[in-house]
């Protein structure tokens, strides 16, 4: 019987000891594989200790699937090796690019959603799934720019990607909220239209207003508690699609483990709520 994951937490090195000691049943952790692509030493040992007690998910930020190039073979081989070692419950990546012509830009960069882009990304997702011998989930990134050359909207693009490759999707609810505010579309409509059957995982995180532009531009900063509006979208989503592994992401301005864990418990409570089951 496979484990049914409910609420999990992004694992930060500062929280290794507390995470390892946390007795909670069903708690799972997610890491960026790029931080564990080492040939030995304590990092891998920490991750293996966590893995021995809790399910782990590998959430990549650097395969650069939307670059007009195949995934870097060496990077993909390192990911395969880490997945072999850690045996993750889930593996995910982004609908974005970050490496181009030998330079790595630590961000999730946008592109025009054209037919050519869809073909390239579908090929790259297929290469990744064949290499890892598993289905991966692709995440909707946060958007900041109005790009006029899109041939498909994001949901249409992701739906077609699922159809062509058999991949799953990772729906980041905070990214939907941030993008909707920045680009001026309805977050509720996006959440309602997202293909629920393909959702393998949900992400929740905090955002902040841009330091100069304020509320006109929200930044997907992962440095604050999850906003009430994002919790509301999440409740709406799970009422429609049911229980999915749900991750609390926090990368900056880190509180203690207990504070993050309370957000995780809140998500777990919503996943158990009678309101959701009745829906």
């Amino acid at each position: 019987m496979t484990t049914v994951l409910t609420a999990g937490l992004g694992l930060k090195p500062q929280h290794y000891a507390a995470a390892l000691a946390c007795p909670a049943d069903g708690l799972w952790f997610e890491v960026h594989p790029e931080n564990y692509m080492v040939t030995g030493g304590p990092r891998l040992a920490w991750l293996e200790s966590i893995r021995a007690r809790h399910p782990v998910s590998l959430h990549g930020v650097a395969l650069s699937l939307a670059a007009d190039a195949k995934p870097d073979a060496a990077h993909l081989a390192r990911l395969r090796e880490l997945a072999r070692r850690i045996e993750p419950e889930l593996v995910s990546e982004h609908l974005a690019w970050s490496t181009w012509r030998g330079v790595y830009h630590p961000d999730l960069l946008p592109f025009p959603r054209t037919e050519a882009a869809l073909e390239r990304i579908a090929d790259n997702v297929s290469i990744t799934q064949e290499t890892l011998q598993r289905r991966i989930a692709i995440e909707n990134p946060s958007h900041y720019l109005h790009i006029k050359d899109h041939a498909r909207d994001e949901i249409d693009f992701l739906t077609e990607l699922v159809r062509r490759t058999g991949c799953g999707l990772l729906l980041d609810v905070n990214n939907v909220y941030v993008s909707a505010r920045n680009l001026g579309f309805s977050a509720e409509s996006y959440i309602d239209a997202f293909p629920g059957d393909a959702v393998m995982e949900i992400h929740l995180a905090g955002h902040t207003p841009d330091p100069t532009l304020g509320d006109k531009l929200l930044i997907d900063s992962h440095d604050a508690p999850i906003a009430p509006a994002v919790w509301a979208l999440y409740t709406r989503l799970i009422a429609r699609i049911g229980v999915r592994p749900t991750l609390i992401e926090r990368d900056d301005n880190l509180p203690d483990f207990a504070t993050l864990y309370s957000e995780c418990e809140h998500a777990a409570g919503l996943l158990r709520s009678p309101l959701r089951r009745a829906a």
Partner: peptide, 12 residues
């Protein structure tokens, strides 16, 4: 380079 590669060149 195709349109996507040109976009990435210009963006970078």
């Amino acid at each position: 380079p195709g349109a996507l590669a040109r976009f990435q060149d210009a963006f970078e």
